[in-house]
Nucleic acid binder design. Structure first.
Lengths: 211, 211
DNA sequence: GAGCAGACTGACTGGTCAGTCAGCCACGAG
DNA sequence: CTCGTGGCTGACTGACCAGTCAGTCTGCTC
């Protein structure tokens, strides 16, 4: 095979190993040698591909967050009601967790919620997601579908906060996990934020979700 | 004065200094000597009153969190509608921030959101707050005031998540701060979670809050 | 088969800090 | 005046670990 295209991409192997190690031990608690061991690679090779331990986490976060930002952007472009847009975004994030819980754990625990370390570094990037959601809310307000006394910024924060809180609940076993729960969560998040917790006149006591 | 009752409680001085240092530099980034310097006290004295750096943060968190738990418990005991109960809880937390933003920043950033370090240690204590809120929701559901297809656990997470997200927004300047904003936030949180973002039939376009 | 590029190795270094400890000092008691 | 107590001091130590670097190995090219 050509030298320039090795059978295994060691850089990728290191990144994947880092996800497992960060998820298991946490970024600050693990040593770079733990990542090298997990990847089955020499210590020095980590520094051949990355300039620092931080850069590994930065890479993992940015790779995934860009996918999220593109997903939200695409949803925003569609001609569907707000509720469906927010459902699509919640679905994307929940499915990301379903597909790779370790990576999402690392991103949430070590970046998104780590306000004093990586969260601060990546705040502008994280904020892009808030802003995109706020834009969706704002348009719906102008169309008269959403109430306009709640500012778009605030609504975006509440929506994203609910999604992240649910993932955090799964990560730390505060909420039960499973296929059914993942699907249920998408519905509950949108229903809570858009519809509100209060029983409305003429509403079915237990909506159409009971199975 | 009696030796056993010094004019200044050095232990308290150290705790107060720690709040300022943790808020400014973050728990992991600051050194114990920074706390001692801020308190105007010798390095060793910190270890005379506390067994470790961790114990200082533990103390700050537990002191404040117990006050919160008692406040929620008291609210729960009152004979008022759910919406007012949740408003009272949101008010208590927002006012805590208004009264001592540095302490609340430390508690949220270094404990509550620090899922891999202190957040994990104090998870049971943090969970007590979720559970108390869930109890309030559950009772309101039985009384038929809140819809019952959203589980109490989930509703509690969404409500607390919204409150914490707003404080985080203030802490990191994602949202404007000020007396007006603090009062507005209490209303918006409860309105969003209980009423929902969607415009309801016969609802005033901009409720009674426009000024 | 010589030379080269670059992937790969892992022992070592330098800096950082949490926590220790030997002892100081102010003051009250005897 | 001496002694004891305990709040108080801060230089020091031991452990830890990110990042370095001198060098090896592999396999391609000429």
């Amino acid at each position: 095979m050509a030298r320039s295209e090795p059978a295994v991409d060691k850089r990728r192997v290191i990144l994947d190993a880092a996800v497992r190690v960060f998820a298991r031990q946490g970024f600050h608690t693990c040593r770079v040698s733990d990542i090298a061991d997990e990847a089955g690679v020499a210590y020095g090779l980590v520094y051949h591909y990355f300039t620092s331990k931080d850069e590994i986490l930065d890479t993992l976060f940015l790779e995934r967050w860009d996918v999220l930002l593109h997903a939200i952007q695409e949803v925003d472009g569609q001609e569907i009601p707000v509720r469906e847009k927010l459902f699509a975004i919640a679905s994307f994030i929940v499915d990301s967790y379903r597909h790779d819980p370790e990576l999402m754990k690392v991103i949430i625990v070590e970046v998104t919620r780590a306000a004093n370390t990586f969260g601060r570094t990546h705040l502008p990037k994280i904020r892009e997601a808030y802003d995109q959601i706020a834009t969706i809310v704002e348009r719906a307000q102008r169309e008269g579908v959403l109430r306009s006394d709640v500012t778009p910024d605030f609504a975006a924060l509440a929506f994203y906060g609910a999604v992240e809180q649910v993932l955090t609940g799964w990560i730390f076993a505060l909420l039960p996990t499973g296929e059914r729960e993942y699907e249920e969560a998408k519905y509950l998040i949108v229903e809570t934020i858009c519809g509100g917790l209060e029983r409305k006149e003429g509403q079915r006591p237990a909506a159409g979700r009971a199975d």
